[in-house]
């Protein structure tokens, strides 16, 4: 028996919003420790890694590990049926081929349940080594979304350069070029408004702007986004999901041909 209850169904809606741009379907791996998801987009350029810890749920029970392959389009349709203030419970029997979503209004006067067929998905898990990154940048998530949106008007690629002074985002194309420099915040009153850079060595990497834009669909999950970079390895873009977990996007860089 698997059962996970979340008082804020809006978190689940936001998680889905954050992954459905990149993935059509995904396997939710449920265990005693929580719900994990790892999936690459079709072109194998980016990867989504999400973790929701069991202790972050209002009730959590998972007697046996189960992997639930879900069509994210179908899941979106179902979660649209939940009001933001509803309490959501996901339920599945061991070895089930369906999952049930139960939505309860705060006053318990309306209770709906939606059963969704599960899919058998080929799981292609990648081993991601623990990495010490040369540069770790934290900035307001809304600012990052704005930068990605603004620069994607100029070219298909965004160059991210990180030095100890700050971080620079650049793009160039037919209409011209654009550079956005963010300096490290000198005095931090509010952490969620700060730009911070932890740097071992400077890094410059080039990425496809359309993936960066897709990652920013997670902006509503967190005030802060963290970018981790090292020379010649994939970028990690991380958003925390409240007190319950995180979503990380890995993006392979563009390399010299």
């Amino acid at each position: 028996m698997f059962e996970a209850r979340l008082v804020q169904s809006s978190i689940l809606k936001k998680v889905l919003e954050a992954i459905k741009d990149l993935l059509n379907e995904a396997t939710f791996d449920c265990s005693d420790s929580g719900i994990q998801l790892q999936a690459m987009d079709n072109s194998h350029v980016s990867l989504v890694s999400m973790n929701l810890r069991s202790d972050g749920f209002d009730k959590y029970r998972c007697d046996r590990n189960i992997s639930m392959g879900m069509n994210l389009g179908s899941m979106t349709k179902i979660l649209k049926c939940a009001a933001n203030e509803d309490v959501v419970t996901m339920k599945a029997q061991d070895n089930a081929d369906t999952v049930t979503f139960v939505f309860e209004s705060p006053n318990q006067e309306k209770v709906s349940d939606y059963e969704m067929k599960l899919m058998n998905l080929d799981q292609e898990h990648l081993g991601i080594p623990e990495t010490e990154y040369a540069c770790v940048v934290r900035l307001p998530a809304g600012e990052f979304a704005r930068i990605c949106r603004d620069l994607s008007q100029f070219g298909e690629s965004v160059v991210i350069s990180c030095t100890k002074e700050g971080v620079k985002f650049s793009s160039a194309g037919d209409i011209g070029s654009a550079n956005i420099k963010l300096a490290q915040t000198s005095n931090v009153d509010k952490e969620e408004l700060a730009v911070t850079v932890e740097m071992q060595e400077p890094v410059t990497l080039t990425f496809a702007s359309r993936y960066l834009n897709s990652f920013t669909k997670a902006t509503s999950l967190s005030n802060v986004v963290q970018l981790s970079m090292s020379p010649d390895v994939p970028l990690v873009v991380e958003y925390r999901i409240g007190e319950i977990g995180h979503i990380r996007y890995y993006l392979a860089p563009k390399i010299e041909d």
């Binding site: 898990h125 080039t206 994939p234 392979a252 010299e256």
Partner: peptide, 14 residues
């Protein structure tokens, strides 16, 4: 000229 790498260039299947 740059080309898009894939994650398989960096990570192994587990």
């Amino acid at each position: 000229k740059t080309k898009q790498a894939t994650l398989m260039n960096f990570f192994k299947k587990s």
